[in-house]
Structures are given as C-alpha cells and as structure tokens.
C-alpha cells in the first residue's frame, strides 16, 4: 500500500468575522480528513454552504488554514511559501466551474495554454508551440482553435481548453470545481468522457468537487458527502450509491427518476 497522493487531516478553515464586535464565525470546514490514493478519483459532494468550496480552496492554497494538515505527495503542502509555493503549485492542475470566467478574456487560446509553461520557466519557441498543440488535441480540439479567443468558443470547447491548461505541466493531481455545472447535458457527457480518458492515460488523481451527486458518482472511485462544514458520509462509490447510510445522502441522489429507474431507456 503506497502513501496517498493527497492527505488532509483534521482540516479547519474559518473566515474572519465581519465587523468589530461580531462573534467568531463557525468554521467553514470543520475537522475534515480525506485521503486520495494516487490514480484514483475522490468526489466531494455538497450543497451551498457545505464547505466543499472552502475545502477545495484550502487545497489550492487560496484561503488560509486555521489548523490541520495537508500533505501532497509526502510533502507538507501548507509549509510551502513564496517562490517554493509557486513551484510546488505546478504539481496541481485546476479546472474551475465557468470556463469563460476562468480563461483570460483578452488572450488567445495559444497564449492561455502557454501561461503555465512560461510560469514554470520554459522558453518560448517551436517546442512550446508543439507542446501546446499536442495538449489541445489531447483534449479534443484541432490546432485551428489556437489563434481564437475564449469568447468565440462554445462552453464545452472552452472547458476543454481549461482542462488542457490544467494538464500543461503534467500534474499528478487534478482539482475540479463543478467542471460540468455550467454545461449542457450532452456536453457534460463529452467532458466526463474526456476526464475518464485522461485519468486512464496519465494515471491522474482527481479531486472532483460538485453539488451534483449523480455526475460525480459516475466517475469517482470514492465519495465524500459534506454538509455544513462536516463530512456526512464517505466511502466507496458503489457502496454509497447502492446503500447510503445517511438520509441526507439519499436526498442528494434526487427525486423523480428513481421511480422510473426500473424501466431502462430504449
């Protein structure tokens, strides 16, 4: 049994209370632990206010952590600062919910994909252009997209660019924040297929954060259900989907079509 790629232990994230006399805020993430083995996918599911986004932002080092530890690939991930943190960031790829907001509106796709490579210190040139074209085609887009800008793309195409950018530095961990929530069902299927392919090809580990249990249940090996900052239930996907212990998890599975699940689609 190898050590997990990402290990979060008793993590507490608490935002500063607003105002001088405000009482101390409740923690947004309250003693959450998780462990993500290399090459596997963990789905973190929760509704608004569940703390799933704060957990994700803590893993990305975008919000300060009050207590607890995060270990990435055996290293103390919270200890990195300054230039060391910047270098360490290259081992995590990040895909946000809305690709149109997360891709710089004034840069071309080629420039957007060059950003992480330049940040690592790669020299611009033919080799970099090749790498960019390969990345893009690996994510299902032909090279004639390179000179375009994000706003000229459809939602699914833009999200493919965002995924290509996240993969540019060959990270071992991909962090996904509701990557299909802004997309149509048919496009969502394309993106989920792409993620499954990439995971198989590159042995990626994924932390997939979403409010939609059905979406993440399809591709996650493990699930973790959060509510009000705490973990409600976690375990293997099959186990949770077939026999959720918590009523809340069952609620999240939705209503409606369960009744008709017995009748398969033709």
């Amino acid at each position: 049994m190898t050590a997990p790629l990402l290990d979060v232990h008793n993590l507490v994230v608490r935002y500063k209370p607003r105002g001088l006399f405000a009482a101390a805020a409740k923690p947004a993430v309250d003693r959450v632990s998780l462990s993500l083995p290399a090459g596997s996918t963990l789905g973190v599911v929760g509704e608004s206010g569940s703390g799933k986004s704060s957990l994700l932002r803590a893993v990305l080092r975008l919000v300060p952590v009050e207590s607890g530890s995060i270990t990435l690939d055996g290293q103390d991930w919270l200890a990195a600062h300054g230039p060391a943190l910047r270098r360490a960031r290259h081992s995590i790829g990040f895909v946000a919910q809305n690709p149109f907001l997360s891709l710089s509106p004034r840069l071309t796709i080629a420039q957007i994909l060059a950003e992480p490579l330049l940040a690592r210190g790669d020299k611009p040139g033919a080799a970099m252009q090749d790498r960019i074209a390969v990345l893009l085609s690996r994510c299902g887009l032909p090279p004639d997209f390179l000179p375009r800008r994000a706003r000229e793309l459809s939602g699914g195409q833009a999200q493919r660019v965002a995924i290509a950018r996240a993969l540019a530095l060959s990270p071992r961990l991909l962090v996904l924040d509701e990557p299909t929530s802004a997309l149509d069902v048919s496009v969502q299927a394309q993106i989920l297929n792409l993620l499954m392919d990439l995971k198989a090809d590159f042995g990626l580990s994924m932390l997939f954060v979403t409010h939609n249990l059905k979406v993440v249940a399809h591709i996650a090996d493990q699930l973790m259900v959060m509510r009000q900052g705490s973990v409600v239930e976690s375990g293997a996907t099959e186990r949770i989907m077939s026999a959720a212990e918590q009523l809340y998890t069952q609620e999240l599975m939705g209503f409606g079509r369960r009744a008709q699940k017995s009748a398969p689609t033709s």
Binding site: L62, R89, F94, A96, S102, E115, A119, A162, R165, L169
Partner: peptide, 8 residues
C-alpha cells in the same frame, strides 16, 4: 485566480 494557482 487560475493564473495564481498555476504558479504564475
């Protein structure tokens, strides 16, 4: 935010 997560 995406740029800063990339280590730019």
């Amino acid at each position: 935010e995406a740029a800063s997560v990339m280590g730019v």
